[in-house]
Design a protein around this nucleic acid. Structure first.
Lengths: 131, 131
DNA sequence: TGCATTACCTACTCGATTAGTATGTTTATG
DNA sequence: CATAAACATACTAATCGAGTAGGTAATGCA
């Protein structure tokens, strides 16, 4: 299940893409258009900045903007940044997860196959595919 | 993310399928083979019984067994019973979810398409595919 | 230089969910 | 009637989700 963080992040990215003129877009505007609490969005965009998806500028005329062209983003990288992982089970999501049954687990191959399908789907979905 | 409930339920089903002789299998045996707390499994199999996946019998010689042949079960129905829904977002998981932005939501089509892929994958995966 | 605007930072809250544990009671069999 | 099993009820401890509150720092403009 994708949380609001991932879903809102996608919508912020789409909003910035639609208003992509080289200008910084104030979060206030994005929040109003998207009908999302600005305070909560602050937390989300902060992670997007540190994750390198967007840049922010303080002061008047400031705001946020994309660092690449919209078609250079995938839904996968945005969701993975916000959700931590797109994997369906803990043993695949966490690289350091150790499970003594790994060798004999009958369900692991299914989770791995599904994990691949999920990854392929979201990483082949470009931001511009959603506009 | 699939919780232990769904994952353990799958493993219980596989265990019952492997020991599918018409006899009832005590939960104690399943728990030991699968290395899962029997107490916790009690909660899980209870839902599986009320969900119609398996039947239980009390008393000596009792336990649990499948109600169908193993190839008649899909991973999808097992996971959906335990997880409530396989949908990636709340607005698709909950039938009564109402969202004022449904008509204009740019991300909804993607979630719907992905939801279909997930559903197709797990419902075409038979229990016997995992043995 | 000061004011408005904007991002950025720290902390807190409240409810739900996850992953169990503990302690029984009922039901069947030999 | 003892034993083995399912079935029932209640509790807990930790984490996570989805925010809110209140403040500080940077920047442009008059």
């Amino acid at each position: 299940m994708i949380s609001t963080k991932g879903r809102y992040a996608l919508r912020v990215m789409l909003d910035l893409a639609q208003n992509h003129s080289g200008q910084y877009i104030p979060l206030k505007d994005v929040a109003e258009r998207q009908e999302i609490s600005k305070k909560y969005l602050e937390i989300i965009v902060k992670e997007m900045v540190t994750g390198g998806l967007i840049v922010g500028a303080s002061g008047k005329g400031g705001g946020y903007k994309l660092v690449r062209d919209p078609e250079k983003y995938t839904a996968g990288e945005i969701l993975e940044l916000m959700e931590g992982s797109l994997s369906p089970v803990a043993c695949l999501a966490d690289k350091n997860y150790k499970c003594t049954r790994k060798k004999i687990c009958a369900t692991l191959p299914m989770w791995k196959e599904f994990d691949g399908i999920v990854h392929d789907y979201f990483y082949s979905k470009k931001l511009t595919d959603l506009l």
